[in-house]
C-alpha cells in the first residue's frame, strides 16, 4: 500500500529540479594555482565537508535546502561527505568560536591538497553580529585561509551554489588553464 502511494505521489509531483546558476567568480578572495589536470580530474565533481564553527544554525538551514530537490546538486556532481579526508572543499559557517578553533584547524589540515575553503554567511565573511570577543575569533579567514566568501544572512541556496562552483570552476582569476 505504501509503495503504491509513494509511486503515485512521485508521478504526481513530477520534476521540480531547476537549472544550476552560473559560478560567480567575483566571490573569490584568494588566488590559488589551479592546474588544468586537477581541474579535469575534478571536472564538475566536487566533494564538500561542512563545518559549523559557531554559527546560529541559520546557514545550516540553507545547506539543508541546497540538498533538496529544487537544486539537484547531485546532478551537478556536488556532494557532501562525512570525512574531511574525502573532500575537495571545506564549507565553513559562523564566526569561529574560540571553542571550535582547534577543531576547525584540524578539519582543515585533514583535507588533502589541493583544497578550497568556502566561507558561508555574514559571520563567516566578517564576524557578523558576533564579531571578535573573548569567545569568538570572528571571520573564518582569521583562523584558516579562505578562497571564496559568500555573504548573506543566510546566503540563499543559489548564492551558496554559485560560491561553491566559483571555488572549483575555471572562471577563477589566474587559473592555470
Amino acid at each position: 500500500m505504501a509503495s503504491y502511494l509513494i509511486l503515485q505521489k512521485i508521478l504526481k509531483t513530477g520534476f521540480v529540479s531547476e537549472p544550476a546558476p552560473q559560478a560567480d567568480p567575483a566571490l573569490r578572495t584568494r588566488e590559488q594555482a589551479l592546474h588544468a589536470v586537477i581541474l579535469k580530474v575534478f571536472g564538475q565533481a566536487v566533494a564538500i565537508r561542512h563545518v559549523d564553527a559557531g554559527s546560529c544554525n541559520g546557514c545550516e538551514l540553507e545547506i539543508h535546502s541546497l540538498n533538496g530537490p529544487h537544486y539537484n546538486i547531485d546532478g551537478l556532481g556536488v556532494k557532501f561527505s562525512a570525512s574531511p579526508r574525502h573532500v575537495d572543499v571545506l564549507l565553513v559557517t559562523g564566526p569561529v568560536s574560540r571553542h571550535m578553533e582547534a577543531a576547525l584547524k584540524r578539519a582543515y589540515e585533514a583535507i588533502p591538497d589541493p583544497k578550497w575553503v568556502v566561507a558561508m554567511g555574514e559571520c563567516a565573511c566578517t564576524g557578523g553580529m558576533f564579531g571578535e570577543s573573548y569567545a569568538s575569533c570572528g571571520k573564518i579567514s582569521n583562523v584558516i585561509p579562505v578562497d571564496v566568501e559568500v555573504p548573506g544572512c543566510p546566503p540563499t541556496p543559489t548564492a551558496l551554489l554559485q560560491g561553491i562552483l566559483a571555488a572549483v570552476s575555471k572562471g577563477a582569476p589566474n587559473a592555470d588553464d
Binding site: G54, S55, G94, S97, R98, H99, A103, F130, G131, Y134
Partner: peptide, 11 residues
C-alpha cells in the same frame, strides 16, 4: 556542549 559559545550575552 558549549562549542558554539560565542559570547552573545556579553555582546
Amino acid at each position: 556542549l558549549g562549542y558554539t559559545h560565542k559570547g552573545i550575552e556579553k555582546r
